[in-house]
Write a protein that binds this DNA or RNA. Structure first.
Lengths: 148, 148
DNA sequence: GACATCTGTAACCGATCCACTTACATACTT
DNA sequence: AAGTATGTAAGTGGATCGGTTACAGATGTC
């Protein structure tokens, strides 16, 4: 299945912003942590901003920061903020209506897929951004942040 | 996220085979129900055969049939039979190790992704192929099968 | 044994998607 | 005004996917 890395990137970005707290960070700094291009970061930040997860300021001394406490941000929110379509692709074209199975299979699968995706999001809802930050930075990681 | 329609196709194929019971069906017949090309069907049948979900016979009067009772086939089995990689893509390249978040974020996300996928598969495990067949063919669908 | 049928697989095509990159206009601080 | 940072459009190269063609091999029927 394996689709895009947008979700991994988004969680990573928000975790860094959680780490930086009020200070926030520029798309350049975040891109250095991700080892990618600043535009990739800005596109993701655009989605995260639409979902009211971050606030960003333009111009000199600008950048982005979390608009909420990391303890109150669950991973399913992040998922919904950046993943557009459904997890499973349906039939690319209509099945044969003259087949008794093909006639109704799409509706059945829609329901099955929806319940599977619901279960997945509920699992994500159990984790907050604060959990991720804690786990990612616990023990032996007391050094100061150094981008590149 | 939306990836491939392979899972939808696979469930559809197996549902038709469940409908046809001992009779089974050729890749041509299945392709007609899916409105796709027989080779697409055969490629999927190949995966389903490796997972011991179907048996197929070559040559004249050949075709595929379920190797188990539909009541004993759960959708998560089908999912694992045909979906290779993980549901979520990880970072395409290593994050910056000099960033305290980038250093360990991959391990954290691996665990989060695994638990989300596990939850999804558990939801799929609640449905059997027999359930799908019943729901897809209940009421008003008593007509005989007519391919094409 | 010859023939028709059906499978398995390789190879190719066109479309799509994605991460990445370049480029540039805009906005904000100092 | 200068410098810094964002937002977004547009283009690129690679990968993936559904679909298609082609063909060799297996199997039942005549």
């Amino acid at each position: 299945m394996a689709a895009t890395c947008r979700f991994a990137f988004a969680v990573h970005i928000l975790t860094v912003l959680a780490y930086k707290e009020r200070e926030g960070g520029t798309s350049d700094l975040l891109a250095h942590s991700l080892n990618t291009h600043p535009v990739i970061v800005r596109r993701l930040l655009s989605d995260l901003r639409n979902a009211r997860l971050v606030e960003t300021q333009k111009g000199s001394r600008g950048g982005s920061r979390l608009s909420r406490c990391p303890r109150e941000i669950t991973l399913d929110e992040i998922y919904r903020a950046i993943e557009g379509g459904p997890m499973f692709s349906p039939h690319p074209h209509r099945p044969n209506r003259r087949c008794p199975v093909g006639r109704k299979i799409e509706a059945v699968l829609d329901e099955v897929f929806a319940s599977a995706e619901e279960a997945m999001q509920q699992a994500l809802a159990l984790r907050t951004l604060a959990d991720v930050l804690e786990t990612a930075t616990d023990s032996a990681s007391s050094g100061p942040f150094k981008a590149a």
